[in-house]
Write a protein that binds this DNA or RNA. Structure first.
Lengths: 194, 194
DNA sequence: GTCTATAATGCGATAGAC
DNA sequence: GTCTATCGCATTATAGAC
C-alpha cells in the first residue's frame, strides 16, 4: 500500500472534521452540488480556513476519497496473496463488503459521483485501483458476460448503502445480506453458507 | 398512465433536442455539474432560448426524466395486471431491462443523481413510481433481506449501463446478460432459461 | 490556523427587441 | 422562438491581518 494523496498540509483534527462534513454533504448533494461554503458552514469555520488545508476543491475531494482507496487497495493486495481463483474472490467479497459497510457514504460517493470519475484522469491511481479490483473479481480472460456481472455487483452494493429504506439496517445484518446477495450474483452456482 | 410534467410550452423539435443534449451532459457531469449554458452551447442556442421552454432548471430536469418515469409506470401497470407473484416479477424484470437498455443514460441519471432524489420531494409522483416498483418487486410482507436484494438489483443495473467497459456491448447482448444476472440476484433459486 | 475582505468568474433567471 | 443584454447572487480562489 502506498499513500494516495500528495497533500499540502499536515493531517490534524481540523482535517478530519473537514473530511466528515464534506463526505456527509457529498453523499447528500453530490460533489458538484456541494460548495466549499456549505462545508465550511457545516464545520463552523470560514471558507478561507478550508483553503488552508487544501488549495483547490479537487484536492479536498481527493483527500476525502484517498483513505478509502487505500483500504480498497489493501483488500486487493490481500486477495492477490491467495492462491486459487475461488479463494481470491472470497477474500475480495468479504473484504470489500466489510469495508464498504464500515464507510457507507464513502463508497456511494466514490462509486457513482461523476466528479470522482473525472478526477481519475488527473489521478491515475484512482482508476488503477478500481481497474485492479474489477480485473481480479472477473478473473483472467473474462468474457463480456462475466464483466457485466462484476460491474453489476459493484454497482449493486451502492443501493443498499445509500437507499433510505435500508439505512436503518444494522451493520452486521447488512454485511450478511450483501454477502449472500453478492455471492449469488458473482458466483455461478450454489454458494451461500450461513 | 398519467402524464407526469406540468409543462409551460408545447412540445416540439426544439424541446426534443434540448432533452437529448441535457441528458448527455447530465449523464457525464451530473445534474449539478451541468449548467444551462453548457446545454445551450451543446444545442447551439443561447441560455435565453432554453428559458423559453422551461422556466427553471428544475423544470427542465423533470421534463427530461418524466418520459422515462411514464414508461416505468407502464411496466408496473403491466405487471399488476398479471396474477401470481412469479409472473409479476417476470414482467417487471423483462419490462424494466428492455426499457433501461433502450434509454441507458436516462436510467443512470434517474437512479443515482442526488438532484433527482431531492426533486422527489416537490414532485411526489416521481417517488411514488419508484416506491411502487420496489414494492411490487419485493412482494407483500417482504423482510429486510428481500428489500436489500431488490435495491441491490435496481442499483446493480446502473453499473453495466454507465460503465465505460460495458458501453460497447450491443443492446441485445446486454439485455440477455442483465436478465440472467438480474434473475440470479432476484429469484431465490434455479432460474435462467435461454 | 483562522479570520476579513475582495477579486474574477460563472450561475440561474429576467426584460425586452426582433 | 430565438436573440442581446443585464441583474443579482454564489462560486472558487487569493491576499493579508491577527
Amino acid at each position: 500500500m502506498t499513500t494516495t494523496a500528495g497533500e499540502a498540509r499536515p493531517a490534524g483534527p481540523g482535517r478530519q472534521r473537514l473530511h466528515e462534513a464534506a463526505l456527509r454533504l457529498f453523499s447528500e448533494h453530490g460533489v458538484s452540488g456541494t460548495s466549499l461554503q456549505m462545508i465550511a458552514d457545516e464545520v463552523g469555520v470560514t471558507k478561507a480556513a478550508v483553503y488552508y488545508h487544501y488549495r483547490t476543491k479537487d484536492e479536498l475531494v481527493v483527500g476525502v476519497v484517498a483513505p478509502f482507496l487505500d483500504r480498497v487497495s489493501d483488500v486487493v493486495e490481500a486477495a492477490r496473496a491467495r492462491r486459487g481463483r475461488r479463494a481470491q474472490v472470497e477474500v475480495l467479497l468479504e473484504g470489500l463488503v466489510d469495508l464498504i459497510v464500515d464507510v457507507r457514504r464513502l463508497y456511494v460517493v466514490a462509486a457513482v459521483d461523476p466528479v470522482i470519475a473525472h478526477l481519475q484522469e488527473h489521478y491515475p491511481r484512482m482508476r488503477e485501483i478500481g481497474d485492479e479490483l474489477r480485473e481480479l473479481l472477473a478473473g483472467p480472460d473474462a468474457d463480456a458476460e462475466r464483466r457485466v456481472a462484476v460491474v453489476f455487483f459493484l454497482s449493486g452494493l451502492v443501493g443498499p448503502l445509500g437507499d433510505a429504506s435500508c439505512r436503518d439496517i444494522p451493520d452486521e445484518d447488512l454485511r450478511r445480506m450483501l454477502l449472500g446477495t453478492g455471492r449469488r450474483s458473482l458466483l455461478p452456482r450454489r454458494a451461500s453458507r450461513a
